[in-house]
Design a protein around this nucleic acid. Structure first.
Length: 112
DNA sequence: AGTATGACATAGC
DNA sequence: AGCTATGCCATAC
């Protein structure tokens, strides 16, 4: 019970709560999660929790500001892309030629 | 116990 | 318009 709550402070708990509530076929950006959690500048923390404190949260539904997955993901971006494609998430090609999630269609906003 | 790095983002120059 | 600098919390060493 509390063992999975006492790992982080209120910010981390909020991040975990938000990420764990991302519905199927939806994605969120680190910055948005951080902003909702209370610190728009703490986007790194979201990633930090993801890397170290990750438990069972759908981090594959969490993307960076570009709409693509951040670096360091297990399996690489192609695995991530395949994963989201399995959830019927649509991808778009940005100017850099990189596959990014169509945030306009798949960006999920909690409380809404 | 203190320092360093990190799955990012925003502002400033 | 592109690069540098700073902010944030948590985990690792």
């Amino acid at each position: 019970m509390q063992e999975n709550l006492r790992r982080e402070s209120s910010f981390g708990k909020r991040v975990i709560a938000i990420v764990s509530q991302i519905p199927y076929g939806m994605v969120m950006t680190y910055g948005q999660i951080a902003a909702i959690a209370g610190n728009a500048r703490a986007a790194r923390i979201v990633g930090g929790i993801a890397h170290y404190g990750d438990s069972k949260l759908p981090w594959h539904r969490v993307v960076n500001r570009s709409g693509g997955l951040a670096s360091g993901f297990p399996g690489g971006r192609e695995y991530h892309k395949k994963l989201l494609m399995s959830e019927q998430v649509e991808f778009e090609i940005d100017k850099n030629g990189e596959a990014v999630v169509s945030l306009v269609e798949h960006l999920w906003i909690p409380e809404k």
